[in-house]
Write a protein that binds this DNA or RNA. Sequence first.
DNA 1: TTGAAAGCGTTACCAT
DNA 2: ATGGTAACGCTTTCAA
Lengths: 350, 350
Amino acid sequence: MVVTMQDVARRAGVALSTVSAALTGARPVSVATRARVQAAAADLGYRPNALARGLASRRSHVLALTHPVGAAGLSRTSAEFVMGAAGAAQERGYQLVLWPFAADDAEGLVDVARQGLADGVIVMEVHAGDERVRRLRDAGVPVALIGRTDVPADADLPTVDIDFAATLAGAVDHLADLGHRRVAFVNHAAHRVAEGHGPTVRAAAAFAAATAARGLAGVQVCAEESVAGGRAALTGLLDGPGPAPTAVITMNEDATFGVVAELAARRLAVPGALSVLAVVSSPAVAGQTVPPLTTMHAPGDRLGRSAVDALLTLLDTGAAPPAELVPCALVDSGSTGPAPAARLAAAGTP
Amino acid sequence: MVVTMQDVARRAGVALSTVSAALTGARPVSVATRARVQAAAADLGYRPNALARGLASRRSHVLALTHPVGAAGLSRTSAEFVMGAAGAAQERGYQLVLWPFAADDAEGLVDVARQGLADGVIVMEVHAGDERVRRLRDAGVPVALIGRTDVPADADLPTVDIDFAATLAGAVDHLADLGHRRVAFVNHAAHRVAEGHGPTVRAAAAFAAATAARGLAGVQVCAEESVAGGRAALTGLLDGPGPAPTAVITMNEDATFGVVAELAARRLAVPGALSVLAVVSSPAVAGQTVPPLTTMHAPGDRLGRSAVDALLTLLDTGAAPPAELVPCALVDSGSTGPAPAARLAAAGTP
DNA sequence: TTGAAAGCGTTACCAT
DNA sequence: ATGGTAACGCTTTCAA
């Protein structure tokens, strides 16, 4: 039924082991022999069996990717990451399997990992005390992280992540350069901070640092991950006690749509009355609003690829490459503009 | 290093083959023996090796999913499909590998498929003369389809698809029941029809049939897959020669945002002036607009799961189950409403 | 009911 | 440079 290496060997008139050598280059083979083997393989339409190869070589050439499943489904940004990883794996001669597990199902994850189908695991959306990472590491499973834990021992695992410091600094700089002095930041929900959700925590610190560095008045609010959450957040910012901001940075994608909705409801012009900048987002998503939003595009594809490369480096050399932090890139779609100097003063007066 | 079945056998004091039988139930094993084996396995933390099992049993318990890669990335709807398939596979004791290939790279696809890592392949976004399907079938690879080809021989492959007829009929009924008499349909780009893109072609026919059945004036337009394409399409509908529609059904997700944008630009109320219904979409996406759009939610999760089940049925029984067609479900978010009788007459007068 | 042994299709090592 | 053969860790006959 299937063509095996033995079949190729017979047709080429050589030993089985020679076919293996000729095809993989594992040991020197004469030019003539190699040609005969390749011709025989081509004639027969031979394809090496991945399972047998993996079993014999202890290298399945399969990488796993685990993404916490939730009601929310896969966001566009996460999807870019997954596809980036799948593409990179493909190009490196690997295949990528998807392991959908709940974030707290470290048990199930380790169970599958120990079946040995995958040579290593890429863990997405890593958080502070992530048990998945701890258990996988304890089980001796090669792991690469998207994000970081707060465990010192995890520091030498291969890691890639968004450079939140540079991203928020870039966002603040962009707005400061446009003359904005009061900038707000709509972060993820408050409970995320308590959970040690990396992006939330690091972005918060980065925003504070960036506004301080530029001498701006920066105010942060947490918003539920929903349109309603975003509307509430903006309402608080505009009608609250302090002076209203002239620009708002959003990182919470669902809330971003709420911010836009609230602005539309109030008939506030963007960027005339308020500049809006969506960070850690995707132009494909931010282009859906009216007006389209200026974005700092999350490097999903790039990080997915880097995670694969980092994991393969660990597998090949036994050592993890240095952590790779990539900032989001600014994509100007026109929702940010000069600060409205006049309105600024007016808004400052209750 | 790793615990093998032999280790378990030694500890339980039985033969290797007995361990296999006790664990898999492949043959009757005495209760006492099974208990000893299970205890030994638990003590040692034994996990069967997926590669070895697959090689010996000719069943890898791996399913592949191929999604055409393109510049657009993975849409939310497609992502739901992928996650549904991954979840179902997981629950059935299978793993899902991602095979990102360009739609015209049937060659590469077959190459990977013939490596035997996967027991079968699920092909997404199947189109009329899909070469991927033909080549995989010719190579003897078990295949399940999302969508359909126009090849009679493919008719007995396991198939799941959106029920476009029922979906469009449901959409038209919903609007007709609200009193609308002139309904427009914004379909995918014109070149999709030429390519034999299933959803485009079937939805077009279904819309025509549904409007005819209800005695409505139905007009169809093709729109480029972009915000600009959607704006242009709506402009054509409102400013064109014929009477303007009072409701529009959109299936082209990118264009949908353009339709919404154009409505906003014209300050036309939704659904006061025009009802909008986004079919084959997702509430997660349609909830991002202002106002949120009433949707007919594509059954991505359900179809992903069904595709896995259909493929497993083929693998287990040798025969494909009957094709499964699932309509999109209406999720009313308020963007459809009664037809504006007054404006209707006015709009009819150039 | 259980044990022994022959594969599954490769890689890797040891001779030659 | 090449051939033979023992793993790899399991499933599956075939005997007992």
